[in-house]
Amino acid sequence: MSRAVMTPAEAARREDLRQRSFTLTPPEGVTVRFDVASLASRMGAQILDILISFGVVLALMIPLALSPLSIGPVAGILFALLTLFIRAPYYILSELFWNGRTLGKRILRLRVISADGRGLTTHAVVMRNLMKEVEVFMPGTMLLAAQMMGVVWQVTLLIWVVVLLAVPFLNRHRQRIGDILAHTLVVSEPRSVLLSDLAETEPADRFVFTEAHLGHYGRFELQTLETFLRAHPLQGAPQTVHPSVVALAAQIRKKIDFEDPVPEADALIFLHAFYRAQRAFLERKKLYGDVREDKHHSEPP
């Protein structure tokens, strides 16, 4: 078999790279990676925001329409005016006071961050939302009136819209023109869940692993095992051992030449004990500069 076939670790790394992320360096110097928001969710948030702002405008229009002032002849114009006065300030003020979140972005768990590793500034928020008027709303309104325009303007509008839509697809961080000028980007809101430490307690001292046993695997395999074990915790484990647990335990035993017998009933305990020993071993190696990325670590490149 040729080397063209990717190892699972390589595939995982490639997948990781494909996931768009933005590395931000806060003033404290510890870099963090934000997930760049998908264009679909941003579109969703934009639609929600448009609905919300139109809802507010309508809510203001209805009492006016019921009042004795006869606004009938100017209703359309009044609507356009209110939209103008509510729309841009809504985006600017909500992003400024709610730290990069409009209501639509809140609902879809997105937020605007500044790409320079500092907080959002008033300038950045105003810039990206003024450009939104030119980028999103002006072509949007003009599209509605497109059939009344001449061919030259229709072609101009078409080119304009195509360019605007292409920009976020063409750059890594999915920035629209307003984002580029304001040096901002939209990311998914980080969520934090503290999972338990799988290596907290020694599950059993029955299984003793030597350096020869632990020299096979690297970080990638260890963390894959971690994901598996989080789905099969030791506490509250069912009486009958899941067949995948038995299969995995057998696989690992074979790979590391573990000679002591492992009864099927103890397969889960064996896996947890192995995880703990392997992690302690790899962490110690790493501390001394021997970073083992995956099981191919000892092979020549």
């Binding site: 963090v32 006071f97 907080g119 008033t122 980080p190 934090s192 503290l194 971690e226 992690r279 790493k286």
Partner: peptide, 29 residues
Amino acid sequence: REISLDRGLLLYLESLVERAFLAVYAPQE
């Protein structure tokens, strides 16, 4: 990042630092 290989812990700390960064450096206008 230097001493632990516990993926659950690393992901938690990263997201916690991100959220805290956003809270600390929020616009004060």
